[in-house]
Simulated assay, not measured.
Amino acid sequence: MASFQRYSTKKGQMWLFKTRTVIDPSTGKAKQTTRRGFKTKKEAIKAANKFEQEIESGLSLQYDSLTFQDVFDQWYANHSKTIKVSTKKRIESMFKKHILPRFGRLKLKEITRSYCQNMINEIAESVSSVNDIKIQANQVFKYATKMDVILKNPLDHVTVPKQKKEFINEPGQTEDRKYWKKDELKKFLAITKQELSLRDHACFQLLIYTGARKGEILALTWDDIDFEVGSVKLSKTLFHAEGKHIFQTSKTKESRRLISLDPQTLELLKKLRIEQKKDNLALMSTNKENIVFTRDGSLPLRASYLNEKLNILIRKHNLHRITIHGLRHTHASLLFEAGASIKEVQERLGHSDIQMTMNIYTHVTDYLKEKTAEKFQRYIEL
């Protein structure tokens, strides 16, 4: 049974509680613990009741001093063995930049829900990937509850606030559209054909005409392309780490897929293969890994190369700003406009979750609704 006592500090009167805990095997006597820093006796009683419930539930005091960093190290030692190199790099960066500086030194049992909510609010003010950060931090707390280090997960019921830009429509703000419309796409491909090398033009065309991820395109080998059938096999991704390139298998079975290619893109790839062979003969180099899009004769293109090229062309020609991933979104959007079903688009893009496909479909149907209104207006004006 806990006892309570008031004591004086520079900040004023505070409360503490003392209680006996588990039996110390070396002495055979119950240990006594003291907890301080409560503003009122009511707070001290509440904390004492919670503490005694934890002891009765079998939570050992050996966990009292464990910090978030301690538990993270245990969790990640196991978790890192189950994920790919690219995922490791992303997770390590997230913890190093955002999570460990805020939670690392804190004792796990002292981390409250209100503290977690404040931290998530703070991160959300400057980081768009706050949802991902919360998910990763939550993995550590879930591990701690599983291992009986804590009774409850303090991140449960913590919400991610919407960012200001979701509420405020700034004067002159442009449409937040992450894809190109058909006329914009045709203009871009005309520019790449005129201004870029055959390799770069073919690479952008393949991205646009397949909707594949950048890593999937850069990992392609000539064996993946069947010129007779007219198809491309997407089963791996390219990842750069410590100056080396690594080919990783696709994350999900849905990502490993065989999709059709149009005759125009196939013809472009045939020309690229011929040009590549001629260049290799001239340079006396060999493309041992049989990579489709190479630099220096045999190495795959850098992951950031296409981003740089795209940004240069967007600035130069004042195009609507999108990212490389936006080309994938563009492919899906135009497929829907052309009449493809949700299932067809999901399979072509390799989405494991149909909700991802549905989100794109929602954007496109909004656009088609606008077109319906225009059709009605033209009919009335006839």
Rank of each mutant, 00 (worst) to 15 (best):
S8Q: 11
K11Q: 15
G12I: 08
M14V: 10
K18P: 05
I23G: 06
P25A: 05
T27M: 02
T33L: 15
R35Q: 08
K41E: 09
K46P: 07
A47Q: 02
A48P: 00
N49R: 15
Q53K: 13
E54M: 08
E56I: 14
E56V: 14
L59S: 08
L66W: 10
L66I: 07
T67D: 03
F72E: 04
F72M: 06
W75F: 09
H79D: 14
H79K: 15
K84T: 10
R90M: 09
S93W: 11
M94H: 09
F95T: 05
K96P: 08
R102V: 04
R102C: 05
F103K: 03
N121E: 02
A124V: 08
E125A: 13
D132V: 12
N138C: 07
N138H: 08
Q139T: 12
T145C: 15
D148V: 13
L151S: 15
P154Q: 04
H157W: 13
E166C: 07
E166H: 11
I168F: 11
I168D: 07
E170H: 12
T174A: 12
R177F: 01
K178M: 12
Y179R: 09
K182L: 14
F188P: 00
I191D: 01
T192E: 01
Q194Y: 00
S197A: 05
R199T: 01
A202Y: 01
Q205S: 12
L206G: 02
T210E: 01
G211S: 02
G211R: 00
K214Q: 10
T221D: 02
D224C: 09
F227E: 07
G230T: 01
K233T: 14
T237V: 08
A241V: 10
G243V: 06
H245S: 13
I246F: 12
F247L: 15
Q248H: 07
T249A: 11
S250R: 06
K253H: 05
S255C: 03
R256S: 14
R257K: 06
I259H: 03
S260H: 07
L261T: 04
E267S: 14
K270R: 15
I274C: 10
N280P: 05
L281T: 09
M284D: 13
V292L: 00
F293Q: 02
G297C: 05
G297N: 03
L299M: 12
L301N: 01
R302H: 13
A303D: 12
K309D: 00
L310P: 00
I314Y: 00
K316S: 03
H317K: 07
H317I: 03
H320M: 06
I324Q: 02
G326C: 05
G326V: 04
R328N: 03
S333N: 01
L334T: 02
F336R: 00
A340H: 05
I342L: 13
K343M: 09
Q346W: 04
G350T: 02
Q355N: 14
M358E: 12
V364A: 02
Y367W: 10
E370T: 12
T372Q: 13
R378F: 07
I380S: 10
E381D: 11
